[in-house]
Amino acid sequence: MIEQVAEPLPASGFEKVVLELEVNNHPGVMSHVCGLFARRAFNVEGILCMPLPDGRRSRIWLTVFADQRLEQLVRQLERLVDVLEVRRHGADHEVFVQLERFFQ
């Protein structure tokens, strides 16, 4: 699943970063994570989520602008009980690069 969850930044002069979230796998997790962006007015460009092989956890990939609110966004994410870990990657991370052809 990949979707636009918030208005893009008007002047998107900011670098993008890719965030990798390890979360508990149950039916409400996507609501918790997606709701947070809309509610806190964070700009998120894309979301991708799949369960991990053990079935107990899922991984969520996000692409976001690294504006001055990124730190706050990460802290808000870490505050969610079902978010177990947040890792940062550069914008060139292959997970979204490979998906690009589906969004032409």
Binding site: G28, S31, H32, G35, R39, L80, V81, D82
Partner: peptide
């Protein structure tokens, strides 16, 4: 009510 209270609880369970 689970969906409705996501933004206003610290955490919630169904």
């Amino acid at each position: 009510i689970y969906g409705m209270t996501i933004p206003i609880t610290k955490h919630n369970f169904l």
